[in-house]
C-alpha cells in the first residue's frame, strides 16, 4: 500500500442503525479499503463522529471523501490528510510481565499485567516492538481518532 493513497477522514454521521454498513459498503464497493475506523457519539444528540483511515485503491484519492458525502446519512466529511492534525490512538496490552520502564513511553501500568498507552500511531507501534520481549498475551488498539489542530473556517 502506497502511503499517499491513505486518506484520513473525519466524518459526522446520523446515528441510525445500518449507517456503519452503508459507510463500509460504500468503501468496499468503490474499491477502497478501510485501514482503521473509530466511532463514538458526538456532541450533537443522534450524531456520531468517525475517524477513518482509508486506502483509495485505484481511485483518485479525493473520491473517498466525495463518495462518502453522497450518503444521505453522512452529514459531513472532511479529508484531513493534508491538514495539521492532532491524532491519538489507545492501546491496551496484557503481558507476561510488565517491564519497569513502561513509563518512559508515557504508558501506564493498569492492574497486574495490563498496560495502556495513548499516543500517536507511530509511537504505539514502537511501543509494541518494545513490549514484544515481555510476552504480549493480548493486545487491543482503537485505531486513531483525529481532528484538525485549528478549526476550519
Amino acid at each position: 500500500m502506497v502511503h499517499d493513497r491513505l486518506r484520513l477522514l473525519a466524518v459526522t454521521v446520523e446515528n441510525h442503525p445500518g449507517v456503519m454498513s452503508r459507510v463500509s459498503g460504500m468503501i468496499r464497493r468503490r474499491g477502497f479499503n478501510i485501514q482503521t475506523i473509530t466511532v463514538g457519539p458526538s456532541t450533537v444528540e443522534g450524531r456520531s463522529r468517525m475517524t477513518l483511515t482509508v486506502d483509495a485503491g485505484y481511485a483518485e484519492v479525493d473520491q473517498v471523501a466525495k463518495q462518502l458525502d453522497r450518503l444521505v446519512e453522512v452529514i459531513a466529511v472532511e479529508d484531513i490528510t493534508e491538514a495539521p492534525t492532532y491524532s491519538r490512538e489507545l492501546l491496551i496490552a496484557r503481558l507476561d510481565r510488565v517491564p519497569p520502564t513502561v513509563e518512559q513511553y508515557g504508558a501506564r501500568r493498569v492492574g497486574n499485567n495490563l498496560v495502556e498507552l495513548t499516543a500517536e500511531t507511530d509511537t504505539i507501534e514502537d511501543f509494541i516492538e518494545f513490549l514484544k520481549p515481555f510476552g504480549i498475551q493480548e493486545l487491543a488498539r482503537t485505531g486513531p481518532v483525529a481532528m484538525r489542530r485549528t478549526a476550519q473556517q
Binding site: E60, Q63, K66, D69, R70
Partner: peptide, 11 residues
C-alpha cells in the same frame, strides 16, 4: 450536479 463525478474518470 454530482461533485463525485469530478475527476472520477477524467480530471
Amino acid at each position: 450536479i454530482d461533485a463525485s463525478e469530478m475527476g472520477k474518470n477524467v480530471r
